[in-house]
């Protein structure tokens, strides 16, 4: 029947329709407009865009050390935070996946999810109370005589890092726990029976087999850190400028929308390149994972 065949052909498109309806007007189109704007020129007198087509903004941000510093800071922050969440998250994910058992798994999963349920602003205020110069942490260290004067945590790289690690830890733990849980316990028993110590089994079997989770977690965390605006603004330092607040400052502070747009496009490119680079690294490091 022709109608039923047409329907069958249309089915995938019908199923995609709801997401396309959201993605095209609210994601693809804005990015296209942003791209167009990045090629325009700012009129400093009016704060309006001049509708020409020029790569002057790109030339400026890619040629100026001021912006290069922002890109490098952003990459350093994203990799640093991803690395910290990996180091903190791995043991937890390992325990979650291999030892937690039926009774503790839901509780621990809830512990992982819980921060997501609380507004990031609320959490930042919590951290401010703890990390401020006059906060709980400094108060304890001063009171115990360990410090003579408060150490700077809030409004510095360390404060921003603490906030980001706390905020993005679940994004690292969940893919990690998932990939560790997928490892067949018999494979670990096989390693042991072949003479491997616990350390050998971990380094030669568990760690390589959890690599897909490591890469997935790394991708998620680097992507969200690169686009994080709240934490650098509320807990970070203006001496360590990173991308998202810089885009905001250019657009709202300096009213340079075209320049801000080109910064945003470069940021998008950096995220894309980072993701592809991690995927390529994954293919090289774990060729066996393609079929999984």
């Amino acid at each position: 029947m022709p109608t039923s065949r047409m329907l069958r052909r249309a089915t995938p498109w019908l199923m995609l329709a709801p997401s396309l309806l959201v993605l095209v007007p609210f994601f693809v189109l804005p990015i296209a407009i942003m791209f167009r704007n990045s090629l325009a020129r700012d009129n400093p007198a009016t704060g309006m865009l001049m509708p020409e087509i020029t790569v002057a903004n790109y030339a400026r941000i890619l040629g100026d050390w001021f912006y290069a510093q922002i890109f490098l800071n952003s990459l350093a922050a994203s990799f640093g935070v991803a690395l910290l969440t990996l180091l903190i998250g791995y043991p937890f994910a390992y325990y979650l996946a291999r030892w937690a058992g039926r009774r503790w798994l839901p509780v621990l999963m809830w512990v992982v999810y819980m921060p997501i349920l609380v507004s990031v602003i609320t959490r930042v205020f919590g951290w401010i109370v703890i990390t401020a110069d006059s906060g709980i942490l400094n108060g304890l260290l001063l009171g115990a005589g360990i410090l003579r004067e408060p150490v700077r945590i809030l409004f510095d790289i360390s404060g921003m890092t603490i906030g980001m690690v706390h905020r993005y830890l679940p994004l690292m733990i969940l893919p990690l726990a998932n990939s560790i849980a997928k490892i067949d316990p018999r494979v670990l028993a096989a390693s042991t029976s072949l003479g491997a110590s616990g350390r050998d089994t971990f380094l030669r079997v568990v760690l390589p087999l959890s690599l897909p989770g490591v890469v997935a977690g790394f991708q998620l965390v680097t992507a969200v850190v690169l686009s994080d605006y709240v934490l650098p603004t509320l807990m970070g330092s203006t001496r360590f400028r990173i991308l998202a607040p810089a885009v905001f400052d250019e657009a709202i502070g300096s009213v340079r929308w075209a320049l801000a747009a080109s910064l945003a496009m470069v940021m998008l490119a950096i995220v894309a390149v980072t993701m592809v680079a991690l995927n390529l690294a994954m293919r090289r490091l774990a060729p066996w994972a393609r079929g999984l």
């Binding site: 067949d184 494979v187 096989a190 079997v205 390589p208 087999l209 774990a286 066996w288 999984l292």
Partner: peptide, 10 residues
């Protein structure tokens, strides 16, 4: 082992 338990990454 019954499931062979070969190391999938090797």
């Amino acid at each position: 082992f019954q499931s062979y338990a070969l190391f999938p990454h090797l």
